[in-house]
Design a protein around this nucleic acid. Structure first.
Length: 835
RNA sequence: GCUCCAGUGGCGGAAUCGGUAGACGCGUUGGACUUAAAAUCCAAUUGGGCGUAUAACCCAGUGCCAGUUCAAGUCUGGCCUGGAGCACCA
């Protein structure tokens, strides 16, 4: 065995062997229990970054650990390969996005292999290949059949820079998630998926996911934004054309209806023109025009002073007969609730601000419960802010004296009985806009027939292939529309002329089901076999970045539920456990090209090897936390691996693999044996307990240090010493094998091991030996540590107490005082309470 | 404003149940080995009492203030700070 550690040499050798022998192929048939470990698949942007390295290393260690523990592990990889960067690169160089994508995939595949990841490459999935997007299109058609896909004209988010519309989830603070430019509103006819139909179950089922972090679950819950309230219809008393009209409003505060003093409709409210008098028409039109011009960011800014104009018409409050005016103001949102708001300035902050500005009347209808040190001023004019706390109803007719939380129900019930109200649950979630005016995506499989209208493409005509005869140099429109062969086609119903849909699907559609395809990746007959998918899914452990907390993770959950309802599978949540790994930082900042603080994985592989990279990326922080990259830290890990290698190579003559996992323990009282058992237990538990790899690695170091220490105390090794040493070193190798995959494999091989160390079962520990033979007895007086005594671990509670009381230091502390109580914690400490 | 997460040495972080606060590492300092360097090894490293020596010893300390307890980084209540998400959502 070579004395020095040459990672590059070893790693190349084993990567070659693993590839040749298909060492990580997963068979569907097995009598072992299944385990599905998955990383979020990468976008083939060109090169791996350290975030990828962290993500894939975490999942790889989990996969290897589970495999050693007797599971049949599925650990696949693929490419989320549709999307705008490929198209932009193509436009820049007037090349084919496919070529650009293929080259990137080839390079990144090489890098993944250099990292020593245990993927089953036979299940590789690439979303931009026809054998994948055929099934994306097929799934679209299943959802279409199920009534979950529709096309409609709507105010949508338009990114001018990207030249396409975006889903709500892709607009971050009014800006495009990809290019950061300001998003505009446009009225366009677009394809939507009815995710709102699943709003409630998507929210409810978050409770079925104890293996997800609360942060992600609350983010999803906030995004879905469920609220409970009521809809009330207010009759219009003076509609200009004499029509009988109602304005429905949604409110979560039915308890405040007696305090309504005006009503606001959004500038885009559909009936607004019918509700405007001739005298107010010009002012209202001007206001609406201004609202249209504003960007989303301006409009949604909460510090903006509220503005509005009166429509000139009035409504009657059916609860008390009062007449109040109608206004339009842009703090009412057309897309939420009914687009109209009942205004109660005394009990809503926004209404209060607006009423102050326009001098609207105010009426207190909720008082703090008496007795209260600060009763509200009776003249509501003197209020300085809205009272939004709980209280008791006043000025509210028959509801006076009722607690406001009870009144919500009672008042709604009253309105329901009288026929102008209903209980209503409202969601913030909007339908998912999936059409994109771009080329590099899965074509939406529908045609427009001159006679038959919108028609889905028949399933036997799938895939609708992306055309090749496109011109990427034409600015301002989707390249796909430049194709001469794509657009014109035949109607599947009447056989007449039809045109194809030129929009493609949001890439998030492709990534909403890829984890299902891995189970049955090479099926050319079906999207996936139902039994096979039911066998492998749900994913046991999903690992990826927090940035997908809403986007990908919400869409995937929806897809799973919808496909279950289509009868394609039998489970309703795709990812049983979710680990959201933190970011990789450098010097406290996110790695980015613009900051110039990136670290190139290739350089790390070249200088230190993949094992060092793997070890380091797991070492300093728990996986969920951000990880600060430091060059010194990498160096430290490299030194540690050298130290381990040296330990093995200098002892190669003394190590017998017979003593790998089941040392005849009764033969030895050696403390090193105990230390190894403690390490096995600790490391196994740390992995089982939320994958705390940072402490796993510190335990590798502790065990290594312990073996060196043990050895330095022996001048010569007898037969039993050699057995103990063999046990310790081989255990260390196995424990390290999920992380230092190449080093341990090489060492295993060099020591004469059969097959692969990765095929060896995980180390077992003996509970009786996984504790040391002596303990440090801590003796406290009144809860403060006053002495520490080394004692035999087998001491009884009484004996512990005696040892404690016999201590000179303790005697000094307790002398002349009365011992009130003595608390003994077995195996740990004695606390003496004195007065 | 609402929701979630976090706060421990110079730094990353550790501490199943409430039971030795600071494991392990980085950095720093000193030393050994070497002609020298690299590599390696050894030692020290929360702050203060305390500037020197043998060696201790004492006090304080996990964002802040209370509380529960024999015992609190850990539990409870109330704050403060930072991060993230949502947000004129009626």
């Amino acid at each position: 065995m070579k004395e020095s550690y040459f990672p590059q040499e070893i790693e190349k050798k084993w990567q070659g062997i693993w590839e040749e022998t298909r060492a990580f192929k997963t068979l569907d048939e097995s009598d072992k229990p299944k385990y599905y470990a998955l990383s979020m698949f990468p976008y083939p942007s060109g090169k791996l970054h350290m975030g990828h390295v962290r993500n894939y290393t975490i999942t790889d260690v989990i996969a290897r650990f589970k495999k050693s523990n007797g599971f049949n592990v599925l650990h696949p990889i693929g490419w989320d390969s549709f999307g705008l960067p490929a198209e932009n690169a193509a436009m820049k160089h007037n090349a084919d996005p496919e070529t650009w994508t293929d080259e990137n995939i080839a390079y990144m595949t090489k890098q993944l292999k250099m990292l020593g990841l245990s993927y089953d490459w036979d299940r590789e999935v690439t979303t931009c290949k026809p054998d994948y997007y055929k099934w994306t299109q097929w799934l679209f058609l299943q959802l279409y059949k199920k009534g979950l896909v529709y096309k409609k004209e709507a105010a949508v988010n338009w990114c001018n820079e990207c030249g396409t519309v975006l889903a709500n989830e892709q607009v971050i603070d009014g800006k495009c998630w990809r290019c950061d430019s300001v998003v505009e509103k446009k009225y366009l006819s677009q394809w939507f998926i009815k995710i709102t139909e699943y709003a409630d179950v998507l929210l409810e089922d978050l409770d079925k996911l104890p293996g997800w972090g609360d942060n992600v679950k609350t983010m999803q819950a906030n995004w879905i934004g469920k609220s409970k309230g009521a809809i009330f219809k207010f009759p219009v008393v003076d509609a200009p054309n004499g029509e009988e009209m109602y304005v429905p409003v949604y409110t979560t505060r039915p308890d405040t209806v007696f305090g309504i003093t005006y009503l606001v409709v959004a500038p885009e409210y559909k009936d607004i023109e019918k509700l405007t008098t001739a005298e107010n028409k010009d002012a209202v039109e001007e206001y609406r025009a201004n609202a249209r011009k504003m960007t989303e960011i301006e409009r949604l800014s909460t510090d903006r002073v509220k503005t509005g104009v009166p429509l000139g018409t009035h409504c009657r409050n059916p609860f008390n007969g009062e007449i109040f005016p109608l206004w339009t103001a842009d703090y009412a949102l057309v897309e939420y609730g009914t687009g109209a708001v009942m205004a109660v300035p005394t009990h809503d902050e926004r209404d209060f601000d607006f009423a102050k500005k326009y001098n609207m009347p105010m009426k207190v209808v909720i008082e703090p419960s008496t007795p209260h040190p600060n009763p509200l001023p009776q003249g509501a004019r003197e209020l300085t802010e809205a009272y939004t706390e709980p209280g008791v109803l006043v000025n509210s007719g028959e509801f006076n004296g009722m607690k406001n939380n009870e009144a919500k129900k009672a008042i709604t019930k009253w309105a329901v009985d009288k026929g102008f109200g209903e209980f209503k649950t409202q969601y913030r979630l909007r339908d998912w806009l999936i059409s994109r005016q771009r080329y590099w995506g899965a074509p939406i499989p529908v045609v427009y027939c001159d006679k038959c209208g919108i028609q889905p493409v028949p399933e036997d005509q799938l895939p609708v292939m992306l055309p090749k005869d496109v011109d990427f140099s034409v600015a301002g429109k989707s390249p796909i529309t430049t194709s001469k062969t794509f657009k014109d086609t035949v109607c599947p119903v009447c056989g007449g002329h039809a045109v194809r849909e030129t929009d493609t699907m949001d890439t998030f559609v492709c990534s909403s089901w890829y984890y299902l395809r891995y189970a049955d990746a090479n099926n050319s007959e079906k999207c996936f076999d139902r039994d096979t998918v039911n066998h492998w899914l749900p994913v046991d452990q999903y690992v990826g970045g927090i940035e997908h907390a809403i986007l990908h993770l919400l869409y995937s959950r929806f897809f799973t539920k919808a496909l279950r309802d289509c009868g394609l599978l039998d489970f309703d949540e795709p990812f049983k456990n979710l680990l959201t790994q933190g970011m990789v930082l450098k010097d406290g900042a996110k790695m980015s090209k613009s900051k110039g603080n990136t670290v190139d994985p290739d350089e790390i592989f070249e200088n230190y090897g993949a094992d060092t990279a793997r070890l380091f990326i797991l070492s300093d922080s728990p996986p969920a936390r951000d990880f600060d990259w430091s060059d010194a830290g990498v160096e430290g890990c490299y030194k540690f691996l050298n130290r381990v290698w040296r330990l093995i190579s200098t002892n190669a003559q003394n190590i017998t693999l017979d003593y790998k996992l089941n040392f005849p323990l009764e033969k030895s009282n050696d403390d090193l044996v105990r230390t190894v058992h403690i390490a096995i237990k600790g490391i196994t538990n740390d992995i089982a307990n939320d994958f705390q790899f940072n402490t796993v690695i510190s335990k590798y170091r502790e065990l290594t240090n312990a073996i060196y220490d043990w050895q330095s105390k022996k001048s010569e090794l007898n037969e039993e010493d050699k057995q103990v040493l063999s046990f310790a070193i081989v255990s260390l190798m196995k424990l390290m094998s999920p992380v230092a995959v190449h080093l341990t494999e090489e060492a295993w091989h060099e020591l004469g091991g059969e097959g692969s160390i990765h095929e060896q079962p995980w180390c077992k520990w003996d509970e009786n030996l996984a504790k040391s033979s002596s303990i440090t007895l801590v003796v406290q007086v009144n809860g403060k540590v006053k002495d520490k005594i080394e004692v035999d671990a087998g001491l009884s509670q009484d004996e512990m107490k005696q040892v404690a009381l016999n201590s000179e230091k303790i005697k000094a502390q307790t002398d002349g005082k009365t011992i009130v109580k003595t608390i003994v914690v077995p195996g740990k400490l004695v606390n003496i309470v004195v007065k």
